[in-house]
Simulated assay, not measured.
Amino acid sequence: MQYIKQLDSLRAIAVLFVIFHHWKPVPHVNRFSLGAMGVYIFFVISGFLISSILLFAKKDHETNHTSKKTILKSFYLRRVLRIFPLYYFAITLGYILQNHINLYVDFEKLLPYLATFTTNYYFLFNETWGGLFSHFWSLAVEEQFYLIWPWILVYCHKKYLPVVIIIFIFIGIGHQYLSNYEIEQVGISTLSCFDALGLGSLLAFYYVYNPPTLIKFQKVFAPLGIIILVLFLMKYLFLYGVIFIPNLPLGTSMAIMTTALINHFIVHHENKNFKEAFFFKNKILIWIGKLSYGLYVYHYFIPEIFGPIIFGQNTQTFKNQNFSLNHSLQFVTYLLITLFISFISYRFLEQRFLKLKNLFKY
């Protein structure tokens, strides 16, 4: 499929949201749930890209009679090459470092769930988090999604796919409304994320099978995204309860706004007069976006590993500080270290496996 560079910029924004949330959890930043916002941006992007790849393969099957089993085999092998090396390297790193740094979790107890991509349900059912591995829940959600979604896209007749995708979207929205919000981990169930993954998939369906429809979508998604953004800001700027504001789940809100943005990118990404080009075609953001997987995986470990060496303090001390020049200096230092490590990881670990993806068509 065609490379859309703005998606890398969007990935960069998403991962920076997550990093900022985990490293700077002061009250007025947490109020906006930047970490959750970043993750839901990732989910929509993932739903769009994965579904686009599979649907283009399905289209190839319809014209060239490519085997469906070949499509699925290639898809899963390519996913393994992209996700597994860094993921299991990070787990191995945790195993090696568990006696040298504080992982803030019983690593031996968590390990089976890490190894099987089921940490989200471990956190949910135990109403706890996983220390420096807490953010791995979103990787678990995506892998669980990959277990069922490719089969549906490849084997379901294309005329039924929009309905099936819309059902998945409403399952995600409904699950969020019906969930027990007294549990902090409520939003990390895979079902709760179906709306974001589904919206990305719905966009992918029309991107592959009926691109002109996206221009019509623009007329709907653009104003809808703006309306939800305004309502979202009103809600989190202390106006909720003062005036009536519809209580749309955070995940759904972010998913709709992200879908609107991606649809805008698809329609206008080749336009030389693209108004947001100065930002979403920014080379630094695109570069950060390419490193986003590594940045996401490594960032939680950095203050715990390097904090005692450079600043004489651990993660908890760093996170519990208020805004200050000293904290800002630490934040920038950790960010630069994370960028460097993620670049080295991408260059010498991830790319070695990414090159192997070329052996498989889909």
Results as ranks from 00 to 15, higher is better:
18 V>R: 03
291 L>N: 07
194 F>L: 15
41 I>A: 06
28 H>Y: 12
213 T>Q: 15
172 G>P: 00
71 I>S: 03
82 R>E: 13
131 G>C: 13
277 A>H: 11
225 G>M: 14
171 I>N: 01
234 M>L: 15
164 V>T: 13
332 V>D: 10
54 L>I: 10
243 I>P: 02
255 A>P: 03
146 Y>K: 14
237 L>E: 12
160 Y>T: 04
197 L>T: 10
107 F>A: 08
250 L>A: 12
290 K>T: 09
320 N>F: 06
127 E>G: 01
190 T>C: 02
234 M>G: 10
22 H>G: 09
316 Q>I: 09
1 M>T: 12
177 Y>S: 00
226 I>K: 10
207 Y>A: 08
194 F>I: 01
133 F>E: 05
7 L>Y: 02
122 Y>G: 05
300 Y>D: 11
352 R>Q: 13
274 F>A: 05
167 I>E: 04
291 L>T: 05
40 Y>P: 01
332 V>S: 15
120 N>F: 00
16 L>N: 12
270 E>P: 00
258 T>Y: 06
16 L>G: 03
258 T>E: 11
94 G>Q: 01
152 I>M: 05
128 T>M: 08
82 R>A: 12
14 A>F: 04
117 F>V: 10
196 A>H: 13
85 P>D: 09
193 C>D: 12
314 N>L: 05
209 Y>T: 13
32 F>A: 01
199 L>T: 07
138 S>H: 01
110 L>N: 01
62 E>T: 03
333 T>V: 14
206 Y>E: 09
96 I>M: 00
258 T>R: 08
179 S>K: 04
175 H>R: 06
347 R>T: 15
141 V>F: 02
57 A>C: 14
87 Y>P: 02
78 R>P: 08
242 V>Q: 00
25 P>R: 00
339 L>F: 13
120 N>I: 09
195 D>H: 08
134 S>I: 04
8 D>H: 00
